[in-house]
Design a protein around this nucleic acid. Sequence first.
DNA 1: CAGGATCCTTGAGGATACTG
DNA 2: CAGTATCCTCAAGGATCCTG
Lengths: 144, 144
Amino acid sequence: MLLCKKCIFARKVSAHFMEDSHKLDHSECQNRIRPVKEALAFLSGKWKLPIILSLWLGNKRFSEISKEVNGITDRMLSKELRDLEINGFVKRVIHDSYPVVVEYILTDYGKTLKPVIDALGEWGASYHSRPANGSKRASHPDTE
Amino acid sequence: MLLCKKCIFARKVSAHFMEDSHKLDHSECQNRIRPVKEALAFLSGKWKLPIILSLWLGNKRFSEISKEVNGITDRMLSKELRDLEINGFVKRVIHDSYPVVVEYILTDYGKTLKPVIDALGEWGASYHSRPANGSKRASHPDTE
DNA sequence: CAGGATCCTTGAGGATACTG
DNA sequence: CAGTATCCTCAAGGATCCTG
């Protein structure tokens, strides 16, 4: 489970919550949260996922991504692609032809996102179909 | 897979679906992006995950969460808890004792986040150690 | 075509003070 | 103790124009 012994005993939770938690100390417990937050921080931008999924289908040029990821501006696409490249998710391939053609491809590392995206997608679907309390929605359902 | 069946069948790409199929009309695939984005949108706040992880072990009072989730202000905790409650992740239990005690517990629905958090955590860990840097700002690494 | 440079908007999140 | 009410900051993202 996700918290450490200290956190557990602080509340005297029942044993079935513990699982392997007793192996963790408090700092480990925090270290467990950090990667999750790091992953979220990187993915939670508005465009990273759409771009990655767009590239999942194959190599794309700037203008193609621009068309596929609807609503993105050139500036944002440029920034996000650079960010994705810097972090090793996409590779930039420059063809020195008459009009310069730049292709972007997903790296193998980028493809390691699959389980994450799958988990998010599955949960997102069930989350989406659940009309919580009827009060309000946390996220705006946009129809693209 | 990340491609919708429609996209796959449209080109009969089966296992090799992502190679040269970037001309696919994958508007259907947008429907796969949305749940992912919804999930991310909900989770990507600064405090939802820490709060949820704090509650993972059992009931907590406001002040306990406040102490465990480092750095959060009362205002943010109040807002986030309300948001989590509205969306069915957390249940608010008011004990009419003296002094009034309010406990928050994770609902079963909230616990469905486990695969998501697990996936994010695992990937986040590898993401953290894999690229040339940990932060978003960095110099260009080598071409892979 | 493939972006970069500038400036601007917006809203998530923070600080502080107050209350039942 | 368990929150609200105001006000404020700051950075993600957007609009627009420019260029090799």
